[in-house]
Design a binder for these strands. Structure first.
Length: 460
DNA sequence: ATCGGCTCGCGCAA
DNA sequence: TGCGCGAAGCCGAT
């Protein structure tokens, strides 16, 4: 086995197209999709190691494609804000960076131009992304490997869909000693020579100027995209909010959570960086443990769900008990009932729900605790569980900066169809045995008045 | 303020 | 085959 072949033995690596590399090739291409960063990126590290084996340079290729139906200007703007950091960081490492927009060609066409020895990609468990990788694998003429770069424990090692956090937790923990460790630094030995012309990377507006995409949702100002901003956001969390996290994370009026989800979604920061920083911090044990439970066990449970359950974005991802119970209550009267538009415009009778909806629409981010309440009320007020699931997914994917992310689907599945949860009694209207959350007790658990007032101020 | 019951099924011990 | 226990709750009794 050559040292190049040994690289493919890493449990993070999936060989999408096998065979031997093109020894006449001129470089290694890293086709970047999800892990949009130059540090703590195992996919980039693998590309560098492969290139060093072959004595070739590395070039990163990224293509903007308006493919995903729910991605809009808000998402593209945040993403595009990250490209300048990325270009700078890659340039400093002597790695090429080629950014193209559809209808310019995809990575297969790019490969015809630069003739790589092999192509490396990163992973994303969403179906559209998997389908694209299959298409690319069939069109490339060189090996194509992908790397599971945005989880601590490579999802393949978990081998199947797990039933709940309690069944996944021991398996994750068993792997942490091996995988929750810093990456060894790797630098390319052969610098990329700018033989392929790529336009200089401008600001987000320039990158997106004239690009065909859904512009019906505006960018937000509270979150600025990119690895630099992601690191600042992590630093603020470690400094100001990790201490006390165990208690304050479920207090939406305090914003006690990390607020890193937009950055994690676009890979502007990697999970190893975050988890190791928290693990090694001086914060009390209980706070570190609470964060790492959310950040590793529950986040990777969501990823496990999306990776192994093809129905993750549909109501029929439900377990048999939930299907039975919701079907039995299909004929229950829904009172009140709101249309999708009423929900979108936050026109319900419930001030807490309206505030949560407005927080999402105006800031691109809703507090995690309220995401649960928000989705459960959509079930309560929609004509059917199917309609509720579709509405929640639609709103989430349209307005959250971290829309179209496993966390969103798993959260909605938990709230609406009891995914990863259990049956709860006593049975009630509409919900059946799905866990219920009431306005009265939810708004008493934290200072909901302060939260609602704060959101109201955003509207001005 | 705190407690138990509600209710299901996985995964492990036996 | 039996048993313990679980992603975020609710309600009523004490």
């Amino acid at each position: 086995m050559t040292s190049l072949e040994k690289l493919a033995q890493d449990p993070r690596v999936t060989v999408r197209r096998g065979g031997t590399h093109d020894s006449d090739g001129r470089c290694v291409v890293y086709w970047m999709q999800r892990a949009q960063r130059a540090t703590d990126n195992p996919a980039l590290n693998l590309a560098i190691r492969a290139a060093n084996c072959l004595q070739k340079p590395v070039v990163v290729f990224f293509r903007l494609a308006p493919r995903s139906i729910h991605a809009n200007l808000r998402h593209y703007h945040f993403m595009a804000q990250g490209f300048r950091d990325l270009a700078l960081d890659l340039n400093r490492k002597k790695i090429g960076f080629v950014l193209r927009r559809a209808p310019e060609g995809n990575v297969a066409a790019f490969s015809d131009e630069v003739r790589p020895c092999l192509v490396v990609g990163d992973e994303n468990p969403m179906k559209e992304s998997e389908d694209t990788k299959d298409v690319i694998a069939s069109r490339l003429r060189v090996p194509f490997w992908t790397v599971d770069a945005d989880v601590i424990v490579p999802s393949r090692l978990l081998s199947k869909e797990h039933y709940a956090a309690r069944t996944l937790r021991p398996r994750i923990k068993a792997h942490l000693e091996q995988f929750l460790v810093p990456f060894t630094k790797t630098a390319p030995r052969v610098p990329w020579k700018d033989s392929i012309k790529s336009k200089p990377v401008g600001d987000a507006a320039q990158i997106l100027d004239g690009f065909s995409l859904d512009r019906s949702v505006q960018p937000v100002f509270g979150f600025v995209g990119g690895p630099r901003e992601a690191q600042k956001s992590l630093d603020r969390f470690l400094r100001d909010r990790l201490k006390g996290y165990a208690i304050q994370r479920n207090r939406p009026e305090l914003d006690g959570t990390s607020q890193l989800s937009p950055y994690l979604h676009f890979g502007h920061i990697g999970p190893h960086r975050v988890a190791l920083a928290v693990k090694n911090s001086q914060a009390p044990r209980a706070d570190r443990d609470a964060f790492l439970e959310e950040f590793i066990v529950r986040r990777e449970l969501a990823i496990n769900f999306v990776r192994y359950n093809p129905r993750y974005d549909r109501v029929d991802c439900w377990e048999p008990w939930a299907n039975r119970s919701l079907t039995q209550h299909a004929g229950d009267a829904r009172k009140p009932r709101y249309t999708e538009k009423q929900l979108e415009w936050a026109e319900t009778h419930d001030p807490l729900w309206n505030a949560a909806q407005k927080q999402m629409v105006l800031t691109g981010w809703m507090h995690g605790y309220l995401r649960m309440y928000w989705a459960k009320k959509i079930l309560e007020w929609s004509p059917s569980p199917k309609a509720a699931y579709e509405t929640a997914v639609w709103l989430n994917d349209r307005y959250e900066l971290d829309g179209r992310d496993p966390n969103g689907y798993a959260g909605i599945a938990w709230a609406v169809v009891g995914k990863h949860d259990r049956a709860w009694g006593p049975e009630r209207q509409v919900f059946g045995k799905i866990r219920y959350m009431s306005y009265e007790s939810t708004s008493r658990k934290f200072d909901s008045k302060t939260y609602i007032d704060r959101i109201r101020k955003l509207e001005r």
